[in-house]
Write a protein that binds this DNA or RNA. Structure first.
Length: 468
DNA sequence: AACTACTTCAACCGCACGTAC
DNA sequence: CGTACGTGCGGTTGAAGTAGT
């Protein structure tokens, strides 16, 4: 980064730097348009003098029109930089210091609902900025990752839902992208209402839809995924159309509707997906395929950047039932390539699941990475996922006894390992005493044995939540 | 005290969106 | 309708600070 070049030009002795790549007037440089009299824009840490200038400017002219700052003042900062400095540090009523417990809990709850919608979260935390929240979250991820804990504590699932309902009821949303921070709690209409339209719409169709977030959250335990720095993508676990259709008797709340409307899993899949190709949320994966075993990460559930699990019903790219992306999407896999891969790549035998997972962990991400704003067609089914989770957990217990650090997975880790990338460092997260501790975080989504799954011995109520 | 490793956080970047012309 | 501009957002980076050895 160019701003790292520290010089002593600062008027108050602080480090600062000059961005000397003088762009031509009206050219775009690093996202800042440098126009008019000044073409050299300062970068790097702000000095108190600069702060004073900016504060004076805002007092006189108000917020906004940030590009005019450099025209009307001696400040050699681009508009974006001014805006950021004001919003994050200079504006009044900013809270500084550590987050309170209440704030932390709210952040966790909101993140469970929204994903990385830092700005929206900031609206619910007066005095806090999106940047602060983002930094807090990233730090939290690392802390919990080190501790071998899931991102979301168990209590979040209940509170989360409660919060969601209140959030929906109050309809507190981002009203206007242009609005100022002090307008936080303003109510109103905007296109963003689609988020709640989605929720309501889904809820109307799916009586237990609101509970889906519960299960989604339950399945977002642990950390994983590797990205440049913070890693961890935690997609919700969703069943394939075939699974939904076939799961009929176990899902009384919705299966009757599904089975009534669709004559076959294929029909269900095709119809549901084709109704809305872009949402393509129902995975066409077949339960006979075990994508987790693909060693090229193709099994990773694709829930790109806060996009919605729509079940092919309602096209939107807003979060719907829960946070779909929990952390930095440094690699998002091509849903098509991934799906194609596990359609064409023969699955290795089940026998060495941990090896498979290990191989997966060590596999580089696919070279082809592309954005997708629909739920991946390579979504692994819930049953698949749980089955493998159970297997892995069973194997992990065994591995722990075998004292093989490289193959020791916490149940938490296992939960995510099978659905996403896992940083190499997390392989050793669990130690003997931590296993039980991590177990409790599995909460209601925990399946204790593969046979329990295959026999359908789990609570139907839980699965209703998933499928509906 | 010196060095290293790790963490935190301010500030950058690219992109997307809305509006004005 | 297309373009330029202003703004906001989410992701990323690296200097500074801190802890450990």
């Amino acid at each position: 980064m160019s701003y790292t070049t520290a010089t002593a030009d600062s008027d108050d002795g602080m480090h600062s730097s000059i961005h000397n790549e003088s762009p031509a007037p009206d050219s775009i440089s690093n996202g800042c348009r440098s126009r008019g009299k000044r073409s050299v824009l300062k970068k790097g840490p702000w000095t108190s003098t600069e702060d004073g200038i900016l504060i004076d400017y805002v007092k006189k002219h108000g917020e906004g029109n940030w590009n005019a700052v450099q025209k009307h003042t001696s400040l050699a900062r681009c508009g974006k930089s001014c805006r950021l400095r004001w919003a994050n540090h200079l504006r009044p009523n900013l809270k500084k210091g550590a987050f309170s417990q209440e704030e932390e809990q709210l952040i966790v709850e909101m993140h469970a609902k929204m994903g990385n919608k830092w700005a929206q979260m900031a609206e619910h935390l007066p005095g806090r900025t999106d940047n602060e929240i983002k930094n807090y979250w990233n730090t939290r991820i690392k802390r919990r990752q080190r501790a071998g804990l899931p991102l979301y504590p168990p209590e979040i699932y209940v509170d989360d839902l409660h919060w969601s309902e209140e959030y929906t009821k109050s309809n507190i949303i981002r009203v206007d992208r242009r609005r100022r921070h002090q307008d936080f709690l303003q109510l109103g209409n905007s296109k963003d209402n689609v988020l709640f339209d989605d929720l309501n719409f889904a809820a109307s169709l799916l009586p237990a839809a609101s509970d889906l977030s519960d299960l989604v959250a339950c399945n977002m335990l642990g950390t994983g995924a590797s990205s440049s720095r913070y890693e961890s993508y935690m997609p919700p676990i969703l069943p394939s159309p075939k699974q939904i259709w076939e799961s009929g008797s176990r899902f009384p709340m919705c299966s009757s509707n599904i089975k009534h409307e669709f004559q076959s899993p294929e029909h269900f899949q095709n119809t549901a997906v084709q109704k809305n190709p872009r949402s393509c949320s129902i995975s066409p994966c077949d339960v006979d395929h075990h994508p987790y075993e693909n060693q090229h990460s193709s099994h990773m559930m694709m829930v790109p950047d806060s996009h919605t699990v729509t079940y092919g019903m309602h096209p939107t790219s807003k979060p719907l039932f829960g946070a779909v992306k929990l952390e930095l999407p440094s690699f998002q896999y091509s849903e098509t390539s991934a799906f194609d891969q596990w359609k064409t790549t023969p699955s290795p035998p089940h026998s060495d699941l941990l090896d498979s997972v290990d191989a997966y962990i060590q596999s580089p991400p696919p070279s082809q990475v592309e954005e997708s704003d629909c739920f991946s067609s390579c979504d692994t089914g819930l049953l698949d996922m749980l089955l493998h989770e159970a297997k892995i957990k069973t194997s992990a217990k065994h591995s722990l006894l075998m004292s093989s650090p490289q193959k020791s997975f916490s149940s938490t880790t296992c939960t995510t390992n099978v659905t996403q990338n896992v940083p190499r460092g997390s392989e050793n997260l669990i130690k003997s005493g931590e296993y039980e501790d991590s177990q409790k975080y599995l909460g209601r989504s925990e399946i204790t044995s593969p046979s329990q799954l295959s026999a359908g011995g789990f609570s139907s109520g839980e699965l209703i939540k998933v499928t509906c």
